[in-house]
Amino acid sequence: MTRLNIVLLLAVVASAMYLVRTQYESRLLYTELDRAVAEARRLETEHERLQVEKRAQATPLRVEQLARARLQMRTATPAITQYVSDPLPASEGKP
Score class of each variant (00 low, 15 high):
28 L>V: 06
73 M>L: 14
15 S>L: 14
49 R>C: 03
18 Y>P: 00
66 L>P: 02
77 T>M: 04
10 L>R: 11
36 A>Y: 05
48 E>C: 04
55 R>D: 09
85 S>T: 15
18 Y>N: 03
42 R>H: 05
70 R>S: 06
92 E>D: 11
60 P>V: 10
56 A>I: 08
80 I>G: 10
45 T>R: 01
72 Q>T: 06
34 D>T: 10
10 L>T: 08
57 Q>K: 06
20 V>N: 12
89 P>K: 05
24 Y>C: 00
4 L>M: 15
47 H>M: 11
73 M>K: 07
2 T>F: 13
59 T>R: 07
54 K>I: 04
64 E>P: 02
41 R>V: 01
78 P>F: 00
76 A>R: 00
75 T>N: 09
71 L>C: 15
34 D>W: 07
3 R>K: 07
35 R>H: 12
4 L>A: 15
80 I>Q: 05
80 I>T: 14
33 L>D: 08
56 A>V: 01
49 R>W: 06
57 Q>L: 11
27 R>C: 06
50 L>P: 02
6 I>L: 11
10 L>W: 06
11 A>S: 10
56 A>E: 11
59 T>A: 02
57 Q>M: 08
19 L>C: 15
55 R>L: 13
21 R>M: 10
16 A>V: 03
12 V>E: 04
91 S>F: 07
37 V>P: 04
54 K>R: 10
56 A>T: 07
78 P>Q: 01
78 P>Y: 00
17 M>Q: 15
15 S>I: 13
89 P>M: 02
87 P>D: 01
